[in-house]
Amino acid sequence: MKISKLSPNFEVRDIRKSVEFYTQYFGFKLIMAVSESQDGVDNVIHSDKEYVYAMLQQDAVEIMFQRSDTFKTDVAFSEGLPIGATVSFYMEVEGIQNLYQSLKNEKLEITELQKTWYGMQEFYVKDLDGYILVFAEKAA
């Protein structure tokens, strides 16, 4: 078996708000969005539509968002589970100081930037639905 990529699919309350959060704060770009009618794919989020799915990308990282009601229908094991995760999504970045400085004064749940015992500089951010994002860079 060969695994070629891993793309997390986050169960979210509001596609539009999640897309805005990830594009504004982390530079992700919208690849595609699917409206409630599920009759096609949009390359931009339209103000007159409600969405059930979106895919975003930043360099080699791809993430998907699926609205909670459709996620619960599609992902059998999710029934009865809360939104959020007991897992962190660890992303190695370049320019962690600049990223941290750009986020630390925003109204985000964010930890201090710190050097770890294993030689990385990293910080954690909690997104709108409780998912934990970790940004890390090898310490100088």
Results as ranks from 00 to 15, higher is better:
Met1His: 07
Ile3Gln: 07
Ile3Val: 12
Ile3Asn: 02
Ser4Lys: 10
Ser7His: 12
Ser7Val: 15
Ser7Gln: 11
Pro8Cys: 05
Phe10His: 04
Glu11Cys: 14
Val12Cys: 00
Arg13Asn: 05
Asp14Asn: 11
Ile15Ser: 06
Arg16Leu: 06
Lys17Ile: 03
Lys17Val: 07
Val19Met: 01
Phe21Asp: 06
Phe21Leu: 01
Phe21Gly: 02
Tyr22Met: 09
Thr23Asn: 02
Thr23Cys: 05
Tyr25Met: 05
Phe26Thr: 03
Phe26Gln: 06
Phe26Ala: 07
Phe26Arg: 04
Phe28Leu: 08
Leu30Cys: 11
Ile31Leu: 10
Met32Tyr: 01
Asp42Leu: 01
His46Pro: 08
Glu50Ala: 13
Tyr51Cys: 06
Val52Met: 01
Tyr53Asn: 04
Met55Glu: 09
Gln58Gly: 11
Asp59Ala: 14
Ala60Asn: 14
Ala60Val: 15
Glu62His: 09
Glu62Gly: 00
Glu62Leu: 12
Ile63Leu: 09
Ile63Met: 09
Met64Ile: 14
Gln66Val: 04
Ser68Asn: 14
Asp69Met: 01
Asp69Ile: 11
Asp74Cys: 13
Ala76Met: 13
Glu79Gly: 13
Gly80Met: 10
Gly84Ala: 04
Ala85Asp: 09
Thr86Arg: 11
Ser88Cys: 11
Tyr90Val: 11
Met91Ala: 07
Val93Ser: 09
Val93Ile: 14
Gln97Asn: 14
Asn98Asp: 15
Asn98Val: 10
Glu106Met: 11
Lys107Phe: 05
Leu108Arg: 10
Leu108Ala: 01
Glu109Phe: 08
Glu112Trp: 04
Thr116Trp: 00
Gly119Glu: 08
Met120Leu: 14
Met120Ala: 11
Gln121Asn: 15
Phe123Glu: 00
Tyr124Ala: 03
Leu128Thr: 01
Asp129Ile: 00
Gly130Gln: 01
Tyr131Cys: 01
Phe135Arg: 08
Ala136Cys: 00
Ala136Val: 07
Ala136Lys: 11
Lys138Gly: 00
Lys138Ile: 09
Ala140Gln: 15
Ala140Thr: 15
